[in-house]
Lab assay of single mutants.
Amino acid sequence: KKVTINGVEIKFNNPEEAVKFALELAKRLNLRIEFHGDQIKIE
């Protein structure tokens, strides 16, 4: 399963991993996060 985070394609074994990764990243950098299907936007 491929997920695009800020235009960067990252391959994950499952979608939950991708979501956890994105949330952790957003929390660490104190950023806002948006989900659009397989696209995750962090700003």
Score class of each variant (00 low, 15 high):
38 D>T: 06
39 Q>R: 08
7 G>A: 03
24 E>A: 12
40 I>P: 00
19 V>F: 12
19 V>C: 12
28 R>E: 11
11 K>I: 15
41 K>P: 01
1 K>E: 06
21 F>H: 03
3 V>A: 01
38 D>H: 07
30 N>V: 05
9 E>T: 14
24 E>H: 05
1 K>N: 14
42 I>H: 01
2 K>P: 06
30 N>G: 11
5 I>C: 04
23 L>S: 05
15 P>C: 13
43 E>F: 15
35 F>E: 03
26 A>N: 02
13 N>L: 12
29 L>N: 06
8 V>T: 06
26 A>M: 06
13 N>S: 13
27 K>P: 02
42 I>A: 01
16 E>Y: 12
17 E>H: 07
36 H>I: 14
24 E>F: 05
29 L>V: 04
20 K>D: 07
11 K>T: 14
39 Q>P: 02
26 A>W: 03
8 V>Q: 08
34 E>I: 10
15 P>M: 13
26 A>S: 07
18 A>G: 05
7 G>I: 09
18 A>N: 03
25 L>G: 00
42 I>W: 02
40 I>E: 01
36 H>T: 13
31 L>Y: 08
22 A>H: 01
30 N>T: 04
26 A>I: 06
40 I>Q: 01
8 V>G: 02
17 E>P: 03
39 Q>M: 14
39 Q>D: 13
34 E>R: 06
21 F>A: 04
10 I>Q: 03
12 F>P: 01
19 V>A: 06
43 E>T: 15
41 K>R: 13
14 N>K: 08
16 E>L: 11
23 L>Q: 08
5 I>K: 00
21 F>T: 03
14 N>G: 06
20 K>Y: 09
39 Q>G: 11
15 P>N: 10
35 F>G: 01
21 F>R: 03
28 R>Y: 12
8 V>W: 10
13 N>I: 11
2 K>T: 15
5 I>G: 01
17 E>W: 13
37 G>T: 09
11 K>S: 14
15 P>K: 09
41 K>A: 09
37 G>K: 10
7 G>C: 06
17 E>C: 15
12 F>D: 00
39 Q>K: 09
3 V>K: 01
11 K>N: 13
7 G>Q: 03
10 I>G: 00
16 E>M: 12
29 L>G: 05
30 N>I: 04
5 I>T: 01
8 V>K: 08
31 L>R: 01
22 A>M: 09
6 N>T: 03
22 A>V: 13
19 V>N: 03
30 N>S: 05
17 E>D: 13
17 E>A: 12
3 V>E: 02
7 G>F: 04
18 A>C: 11
3 V>L: 07
13 N>M: 11
11 K>D: 08
21 F>C: 09
2 K>A: 11
25 L>K: 00
29 L>W: 10
2 K>H: 12
38 D>E: 08
18 A>E: 01
40 I>W: 04
25 L>I: 12
25 L>R: 00
9 E>Q: 09
42 I>M: 08
21 F>Y: 10
4 T>C: 13
41 K>G: 02
27 K>H: 14
35 F>P: 00
37 G>E: 11
42 I>Q: 01
17 E>M: 08
41 K>W: 13
18 A>W: 09
3 V>F: 06
36 H>M: 11
25 L>N: 02
15 P>L: 12
7 G>L: 05
39 Q>I: 15
3 V>P: 04
39 Q>H: 14
20 K>L: 10
6 N>W: 15
22 A>P: 00
37 G>Y: 10
19 V>P: 00
10 I>E: 01
38 D>K: 03
17 E>T: 07
28 R>I: 12
12 F>Y: 04
14 N>P: 08
38 D>C: 05
33 I>H: 00
36 H>F: 12
4 T>V: 15
21 F>W: 13
36 H>K: 11
19 V>G: 02
25 L>Q: 04
31 L>S: 05
9 E>W: 07
41 K>L: 14
42 I>F: 06
18 A>K: 01
16 E>Q: 12
13 N>C: 10
19 V>M: 14
37 G>R: 08
2 K>D: 04
27 K>F: 13
3 V>R: 00
5 I>H: 04
38 D>R: 02
10 I>P: 00
23 L>D: 04
34 E>Y: 11
41 K>Q: 08
1 K>F: 15
27 K>S: 13
5 I>Y: 13
26 A>C: 10
5 I>W: 13
43 E>A: 11
16 E>N: 09
22 A>N: 00
15 P>H: 14
9 E>C: 09
4 T>W: 14
39 Q>Y: 15
17 E>Q: 10
8 V>C: 13
1 K>A: 14
25 L>F: 08
35 F>Y: 10
9 E>H: 08
7 G>E: 03
20 K>Q: 10
23 L>W: 07
35 F>K: 02
7 G>S: 03
10 I>H: 12
22 A>I: 15
29 L>A: 04
23 L>G: 02
37 G>Q: 09
34 E>K: 06
28 R>C: 13
35 F>T: 03
36 H>G: 07
30 N>F: 04
38 D>F: 07
15 P>V: 11
12 F>E: 00
32 R>C: 10
14 N>R: 10
12 F>G: 02
43 E>D: 11
36 H>P: 02
1 K>H: 14
37 G>H: 09
42 I>V: 08
37 G>M: 10
31 L>V: 13
41 K>V: 15
16 E>F: 11
38 D>S: 06
40 I>F: 02
41 K>F: 15
4 T>M: 12
4 T>N: 07
4 T>Y: 15
13 N>Y: 07
9 E>V: 13
23 L>N: 06
32 R>D: 05
28 R>A: 11
28 R>K: 12
15 P>T: 13
16 E>C: 08
20 K>S: 08
26 A>G: 06
12 F>H: 02
31 L>W: 11
5 I>R: 00
28 R>W: 11
27 K>M: 10
11 K>L: 15
11 K>G: 08
38 D>P: 03
6 N>L: 11
36 H>L: 14
40 I>K: 01
6 N>S: 06
21 F>S: 02
37 G>N: 09
22 A>C: 04
35 F>C: 11
19 V>H: 07
28 R>Q: 10
26 A>P: 01
18 A>L: 08
37 G>L: 09
15 P>Y: 15
22 A>F: 11
17 E>I: 06
18 A>P: 01
36 H>R: 10
15 P>I: 12
5 I>S: 00
20 K>E: 10
3 V>T: 02
41 K>I: 15
6 N>Q: 05
6 N>V: 07
30 N>L: 05
29 L>C: 14
40 I>H: 01
41 K>H: 11
40 I>G: 00
18 A>M: 06
43 E>S: 14
27 K>D: 12
41 K>N: 12
5 I>M: 05
28 R>S: 10
30 N>H: 08
6 N>R: 05
32 R>T: 11
14 N>C: 08
36 H>S: 13
3 V>Q: 01
4 T>F: 15
16 E>G: 09
9 E>K: 03
20 K>T: 07
12 F>I: 04
31 L>G: 14
5 I>V: 10
20 K>M: 09
4 T>G: 01
32 R>A: 08
24 E>S: 07
6 N>P: 02
6 N>A: 08
38 D>A: 06
32 R>Q: 08
35 F>L: 06
14 N>T: 15
20 K>I: 08
40 I>C: 00
20 K>F: 09
27 K>G: 12
1 K>D: 07
29 L>E: 07
2 K>E: 06
43 E>I: 15
18 A>F: 09
23 L>V: 10
4 T>H: 06
9 E>D: 08
6 N>C: 14
28 R>H: 10
11 K>V: 15
21 F>E: 02
31 L>P: 00
24 E>N: 07
17 E>V: 07
23 L>Y: 10
28 R>L: 12
8 V>E: 05
40 I>T: 01
16 E>D: 11
32 R>N: 09
18 A>R: 02
23 L>A: 04
12 F>N: 01
21 F>Q: 03
43 E>N: 12
34 E>T: 13
43 E>L: 15
17 E>G: 05
2 K>L: 14
5 I>F: 14
25 L>W: 09
20 K>P: 02
22 A>R: 00
8 V>M: 11
25 L>Y: 13
27 K>Y: 12
34 E>Q: 07
19 V>K: 06
6 N>K: 04
24 E>W: 12
34 E>P: 00
42 I>K: 01
39 Q>F: 14
26 A>Y: 04
26 A>D: 02
24 E>I: 06
29 L>T: 03
1 K>C: 15
33 I>R: 00
33 I>G: 00
7 G>D: 04
34 E>N: 05
22 A>Q: 00
32 R>G: 04
20 K>V: 06
17 E>K: 07
5 I>D: 00
22 A>L: 14
20 K>H: 08
42 I>S: 01
7 G>Y: 04
13 N>P: 11
5 I>A: 02
8 V>I: 13
19 V>T: 07
36 H>D: 14
26 A>F: 07
11 K>M: 15
8 V>N: 05
14 N>A: 06
33 I>M: 03
27 K>Q: 12
23 L>F: 10
13 N>F: 09
35 F>N: 01
18 A>Q: 02
7 G>N: 05
22 A>K: 01
2 K>C: 14
11 K>W: 15
23 L>P: 00
13 N>Q: 12
23 L>H: 06
9 E>Y: 06
39 Q>W: 15
